[in-house]
Design a protein around this nucleic acid. Structure first.
Lengths: 345, 345
DNA sequence: CTGAAAGCGCTTACAG
DNA sequence: CTGAAAGCGCTTACAG
């Protein structure tokens, strides 16, 4: 079981290893006959190029790292699966790198990641997508990156998002159309740009339907179940009690539902509840949560796809070629479940 | 900003690059004075060795891949985080590789992973931990691997598990002590060895407490929420209805809870419910689920730790040294919540 | 269209 | 204790 290298293939096919290399990389200037011979040798010897040797010669690793700091396991898993899909399609592998946004040593941590792994690019997921310092750092280091769910759409880097503002607008509008006027709102984590977007959608819906914005109906959460429970404590004891609660994500909405149930409130008759994200919990609890589904996998898949494209481009020495700015916005989708049925009207 | 390589360090420190290499790898036979000089050069030049070059020379990648095929996002995330911890501690990185157990091409898929990534080792998580064919394949290829939550404890490879049988025993015993006699059981996915273990624990508890095993109280699930809902449909319509349900994981238990609530049954008064795993959903729903917490992160961390040890060992040419079999069993812990309170008795 | 030489940044024998 | 040479398996200029 000797190791099969480019040399074995070259001598088997009776050509130089440079020619083998040409075939390997789909370079032009190889006669069809020669190419066939080499391809046949690949097959018969069951040859696969050693990515580490390639990496050393071309200063590449064929690995992409995914950065995240997110409490939602299901969100993380979805991010990963979209990223993996794009990676595998292009012969890349995916490294995962959770790290803390608030950490003092964030940039050191990332620098170390770059040093020890020599990844070819980075996917930034929320809340890193909007981390100005990190983005500047990567630009300065000339490390290719793509951003998922970023809101600050500048014209310099790849970014794929979904329309959170519109999603929040639609869900608020639904509640309004069901007859609700006193609609409480629970904000997400201030570091996530989605937090502001969702809040904006809520306010726009109120405004467009001529409903007055009531500041005391708005609670500060941080996307965690726990923060949802705290907010629910306040909201459900308001007098008069709002007839609906729109939480910025499903975990917080689930916490509101639990609190309401413990207080013997009927959902949605006594109080309607809506969430955001369509996390698994939204359909695992009873009543199921009305929510907004985002194409998380697709967002990440697209981001990584364009990232890889950019990486391969830089490789071709086409540095001159203007990389056109790439900003994509995908649609979010309203999903109605039992937590917001007909209002008591 | 020139690239700092081993050569830069060597000339800066006034030694040969072999000496730098020695310091890098903590080899003996370097005088203290020389070592200091080199270490100082590292600092001042801000040098980090290129892992790709190291990898090529030593035929190593410093990357470990984690294999999984599991519907539970929270379980996956916990696995990953334990694995990452161990990896980072030893200068390794983690690649994730979900794949389908039932896929015809499983071995091809793994072989391709090995070819394209050249990982140094593999962590097998359930249901791969007990996949005989895969294990044989890896042995034959001499790829180091470690298994998490494997039950077939042979003496040849690293394996870390938790005591599922005992956990299931304890939870069943709790139900019995609460006065329940007709305790329904929902099995997990047949490909997971945990399924059998948990079932065994259930039966042992019944037997030790002199309660007759009733086959019609046992349903076949597959760990998914959906399968739990199907099983609940049957169980909750039995006549007489069992007074307790023990589902092999929390997702299925949550489905039972939802079904019971929809039928206006009070939990735990009309029916007690218990799950397994202590997934986030267990505390996110109301009433919270009594369940068993496993140290998933710790299991994976230990598995990867020993895997890396084995990898580094093989590297030292200590092939002769008997690798002692490593099987570790950690304790699972009973967590009581509202879904199983005092029985009506 | 094809190839011989040098190099990517390290490590592994081998000398001394 | 230290170093010069060769090599890991590829690719990048450069010739022809």
């Amino acid at each position: 079981m000797k190791k099969i290298t480019i040399n074995s293939v070259a001598s088997y096919a009776g050509v130089s290893k440079k020619t083998v290399s040409r075939v390997l990389n789909n370079e032009p200037n190889v006669s069809d006959v020669t190419r066939e011979k080499v391809l046949k040798a690949f097959k018969e010897l069951d040859y696969t190029p050693n990515p580490i040797a390639r990496g050393l010669a071309r200063n590449r690793s064929f690995i992409i790292a995914c950065l995240y700091d997110n409490p939602s396991k299901s969100y993380i898993t979805r991010l990963q699966s979209g990223a993996l899909e794009a990676c595998h399609e292009h012969g890349f592998n995916l490294l995962i790198h959770p790290c803390e946004l608030r950490s003092q040593a964030l940039l050191d941590n990332i620098e170390q990641l770059l040093q020890t792994s020599r990844v070819d690019g980075l996917v930034l997921t929320p809340p890193f997508s909007d981390h100005g310092e990190l983005v500047a750092f990567l630009r300065q280091k000339k490390v290719p990156f793509a951003r998922v769910a970023s809101v600050k759409l500048d014209d310099e880097s790849i970014s794929v998002r979904s329309n959170d503002e519109q999603g929040a607008f639609e869900i608020t509008e639904l509640l309004i159309e069901l007859g609700h006027k006193d609609i409480a709102f629970i904000k997400g984590h201030p570091d996530h740009s989605a937090t502001e977007q969702r809040f904006n959608g809520y306010r726009r819906a109120l405004a467009e339907h001529g409903i007055e914005y009531q500041e005391h109906l708005v609670e500060e959460g941080n996307f965690s179940y726990h923060s949802g429970a705290d907010s629910a404590e306040t909201i459900l004891h308001l007098d008069p009690r709002p007839t609906a609660v729109f939480a910025s994500n499903d975990y917080m909405a689930a916490a509101v539902l639990k609190a309401a149930t413990q207080m013997d409130l009927k959902v949605p008759d006594d109080i309607a509840i809506a969430g955001f994200d369509n996390a698994p919990i939204a359909r695992h609890i009873w009543p199921g949560l009305t929510t907004i589904a985002q194409p998380v996998e697709e967002m990440t898949r697209l981001a990584v796809e364009h990232l890889i494209e950019q990486i391969n481009q830089g490789d071709n020495g086409d540095e001159e070629q203007q990389k056109e700015p790439l900003q994509i916005t995908l649609e979010a989708k309203l999903i109605c479940r039992e937590s917001t049925a007909a209002p008591k009207s």
